[in-house]
Computed example of a mutant assay.
Amino acid sequence: MSDGFATRAIHAGQQPDPATGSVITPIHATSTYAQDGVGQQRAGYEYSRTGNPTRTALAECLASLEGGRHGHAFASGMSATDAVLRAALRPGDHLVIPDDAYGGTFRLIDKVLSGWGVEYTPVPVSDVDAVRAAIRPNTKMLWIETPTNPLLNIADLSTLAQLSHDTGTRLAVDNTFASPHLQQPLEHGAGVVVHSTTKYLGGHSDVVGGAVVTSDDELAEQVGFLQNSAGAVPGPFDAWLTLRGLKTLAVRMERHSRNAERVVEALENHPKVSHVIYPGLEQHPAHQVAAKQMRHFGGMVSFLHADGPEAALEMCARTRLFTLAESLGGVESLIEHPGRMTHASTEGSLLQVPAELVRLSVGIEEADDLVEDLRTALG
């Protein structure tokens, strides 16, 4: 019998140190490694841009949690995203992206890769027919977020994986919002998974990182080559912090999800909220799909302020426990205005988000305290 998720999060890639017996993976703070002779490396390490034992432990754990054969730990989520896109695409190629994609991903594709000759089409990822219609003869990749950031739309991973297979494209899934505890895209047929490990995987808002996991041997080799060539590697302390965060991922995601459900219930009954967006709500248009492919519905909640954009901005500045800040997935609760913050790069584009939208990253504090904080800030 294979070990369960929480067990692998604590033990995968993290055997006791053979030299000292340390039960926690050491921080290998070194740039280079002594060789026993020219080309005679000890344990396969020669230079820490190419490989570091602390980073290797993290990569192995990440691969285990996502159910993939190969894992790569990156310096940031965007460097992981960039590596996958550059490994899979060439000038003249086309990809499909969500019409509410993360602002940083959109900026990379629209402002950087498009200048390299890559074309893209934004579509609603919950509409399989729209995704199918957007595929061209030169389409090489379907880049999917589910849930999407920040509108929490849901893509049917199994259906899109079949579409990807039928059309000869590659399905890449940004699994940051769900985390591998709630959802494992490779299990549904995706070709590669990307994370900002800064978020739920690290879980404590104290480290920036990214990850790529795949079972595609060729893609893994290309991603590894690009990482070594361009140097987007996390330092050993960053890798160690992320590895430490992974150990509590399962219990944290359970609490994030339970707290989010309490927050959603309070927001739904508040007169200052015109619409709550959460995959766990039965009225969410893709609730059944989310229920099929997710263990729980996660800690991210978005809503529209009934009094409009200015009221949304003012509300974001009035919370006490929800800290006004970008990012998400930490133990502490965060609040932000996507249109002015994380998704400002989408202004004026097809991906522009509603100006009255507020996004919450619900932490693991006492749920009653979080609900009271939002009620007070809403007035």
Results as ranks from 00 to 15, higher is better:
Leu328His: 08
Glu261Phe: 03
Pro271Glu: 09
Ala317Tyr: 01
Pro271Gly: 04
Arg318Lys: 15
Ala260Leu: 15
Asp368Phe: 01
Val251Leu: 08
Val301Arg: 02
Asp368Thr: 13
Glu356Ile: 11
Val371Asn: 00
Lys272Cys: 03
Ala286Val: 02
Pro271Trp: 04
Ala291Gly: 06
Pro234Met: 12
His270Thr: 07
Leu321Asp: 08
His337Asn: 11
Glu282Trp: 07
Gly363Met: 04
Thr346Lys: 08
Arg252Ile: 13
His305Lys: 05
Gln293Leu: 10
Ser361Gln: 00
Asn259Pro: 01
Val264His: 00
Val301Glu: 04
Tyr278Gln: 07
Asn269Val: 02
Gly363Cys: 03
Ser274Leu: 05
Ala291Gln: 14
Ala239Ser: 15
Glu282Gly: 10
Ala344Arg: 10
Val263Phe: 05
Val331Ala: 11
Ser345Tyr: 08
Gly299Ile: 01
Val251Gly: 04
Pro309Ile: 13
Gly245His: 00
Asp307Thr: 00
Thr248Ser: 11
Val263Asp: 03
Gln293Pro: 09
Leu357Phe: 06
His287Ile: 13
Ala286Met: 02
Glu336Ser: 08
Ser229Asp: 08
Val273Arg: 12
Phe322Asp: 11
Glu314Met: 14
His337Trp: 12
His270Ile: 10
His337Val: 14
Ala355Ile: 00
Val358His: 02
Asp368Gly: 08
Glu265Leu: 14
Val331Cys: 07
Ser349Tyr: 11
Val251Ala: 09
Glu366Ser: 10
Leu281Gly: 05
Gln288Ala: 15
Trp240Gly: 12
Glu310Tyr: 09
Thr242Phe: 01
Gln227Pro: 00
Met294Ile: 06
Gly363Gln: 02
Ser274Gln: 10
Leu328Val: 06
Gln227Trp: 01
Leu304Pro: 01
Ser257Lys: 08
Arg320Asp: 10
Leu324Trp: 05
Arg252Leu: 15
Arg295Trp: 01
Gln227Asp: 06
Arg340Leu: 10
Ala266Phe: 05
Glu326Gly: 15
Gly235Val: 00
Gln288Val: 07
Val301Ala: 01
Leu313Ala: 13
Glu332Gln: 12
Glu336Phe: 02
Gly348Thr: 01
Val331Leu: 05
Phe322Lys: 15
His337Glu: 06
Asn228Glu: 13
His337Phe: 04
Leu321Glu: 13
Ala250Lys: 03
Pro285Asn: 05
Val371Gly: 02
Glu356Lys: 10
Leu246Arg: 08
Pro338Thr: 12
Ala291Asp: 11
Gly363Trp: 01
Gly329Ile: 11
Arg318Cys: 09
Val371Glu: 05
Val353Leu: 12
Val251Gln: 14
Gly308Thr: 01
Cys316Arg: 13
Pro236Trp: 01
Gly298Val: 00
Gly280Pro: 02
Met341Ile: 14
Gly363Ile: 04
Ala311Arg: 05
Asn269Leu: 03
Ala290Asn: 02
Gly245Gln: 00
Leu313Asn: 14
Lys292Met: 10
Lys292Tyr: 09
His275Arg: 15
Pro285Glu: 03
Pro279Tyr: 07
Val301Leu: 07
Val289Cys: 06
Glu261Arg: 12
Ala312His: 11
Leu324Pro: 03
Met253Gln: 15
Leu246Tyr: 08
Arg255Asn: 06
Thr319Ile: 14
His296Val: 12
His343Asp: 09
Val353Ala: 03
Leu321Tyr: 12
Leu226Thr: 01
Leu267Ile: 06
Met300Glu: 06
Phe322Ala: 13
Ser257Cys: 07
Ala317Gly: 09
His305Ala: 04
Gly348Gln: 06
Ile335Gly: 07
Ser257Gly: 06
Ala286Leu: 00
Gly299Asp: 01
Lys292Trp: 10
Gly245Ala: 00
